[in-house]
Design a protein around this nucleic acid. Structure first.
Length: 273
DNA sequence: CGGCAAACCTGCGAGC
DNA sequence: TGCTCGCAGGTTTGCC
């Protein structure tokens, strides 16, 4: 489900609604998501105050009193749902139930269970194996023309697959890789190492498409909703994603689709050479 | 090491 | 209506 814009939308919603709340109780309905919950997961969270919610790549970072950080990845179908009080009944895939001191209940629901939750010490957060291999944030200065040039120089895979590689740059997934390449006028099947003199436009396109998507509250292809239950709106502004056979808004050519590393890619055969 | 397919798991829409 | 098939926003693993 979520790429950077969707995760950022959820982060902002959490920051707005549960920052400064204190966790009273945590209940798990199973022992694992994609990976097992750590030992004493619930105990480590009990009576902790949520100092703030950050984001690194597609991970949400709940900073807690006592120096721990609750790390959450939404996988494909993970979502947080905030209820004004303890609900009378739970949905089938509510896996984690956070009861807050003020009576509200935060649910983590994840049908496919590709998400994960763990707890990391704040001082060694980015030394954790989840984070050590991650590339720069797309809006960071370090995601530069020189960096991209150096990183892609030896990569023989196609540029679209490369953009989705979280060791190159974080946050770009299947939707925004296609959309960024459309804005860049680059064909998705170009080998990454063959992209010359286009590093600046790639960086700019990634930033533009992510920025616009964040402003739209993310994309809701099937079921993405923010913490308050609102759908994103960026799916109405896709240039190519999920538009196979439809006319390109720029030139009228039919949008095409293909399969790259097991994922669907969408592009305009006319605009992207 | 790099590239790629498969695996993890459930739900849903298309097509028959 | 009901079945099967294929595909879905991510990441890791294991094979070449």
């Amino acid at each position: 489900m979520p790429e950077l814009p969707e995760v950022e939308t959820v982060r902002r919603g959490l920051e707005k609604t549960i920052k400064s709340a204190t966790i009273k109780q945590v209940t798990l309905t199973r022992r694992d998501l994609r990976i097992p919950f750590p030992r004493n997961f619930a105990n480590q969270l009990t009576n902790r105050k949520i100092l703030g919610i950050g984001r690194r790549a597609k991970y949400l970072l709940f900073r807690l009193s006592g120096g721990k950080v609750l790390v959450s990845h939404l996988g494909m179908s993970g979502r947080f749902v905030l209820k004004p009080k303890m609900p009378a009944a739970f949905s089938p895939h509510d896996h984690v139930i956070f009861t807050l001191k003020d009576g509200r209940t935060l649910l983590y629901n994840d049908a496919r269970r590709f998400g994960l939750m763990t707890i990391v010490d704040k001082h060694s957060l980015y030394n954790d194996s989840l984070f050590v291999h991650l590339g720069p944030e797309p809006f960071d200065k370090s995601f530069s023309e020189n960096y991209l040039k150096k990183s892609l120089a030896a990569r023989t895979t196609n540029i679209k697959t490369a953009l989705m590689d979280q060791t190159l740059v974080v946050g770009v997934g299947n939707i925004y890789a296609s959309e960024a390449l459309f804005l860049s006028h680059i064909h998705p099947q170009h080998r990454a190492c063959d992209i010359k003199n286009k590093y600046a436009v790639i960086i700019k396109s990634i930033r533009i498409v992510l920025m616009r998507a964040i402003k739209s509250g993310g994309s809701s292809l099937r079921d993405f909703v923010d913490i308050e239950g609102y759908s994103g709106k960026f799916q109405h502004r896709f240039n190519v994603y999920d538009r196979a056979g439809k006319p390109c808004y720029a030139c009228g050519a039919k949008i095409k689709t293909l399969r790259q590393s097991g994922r669907s890619t969408f592009f305009c055969p006319q605009c992207q050479q």
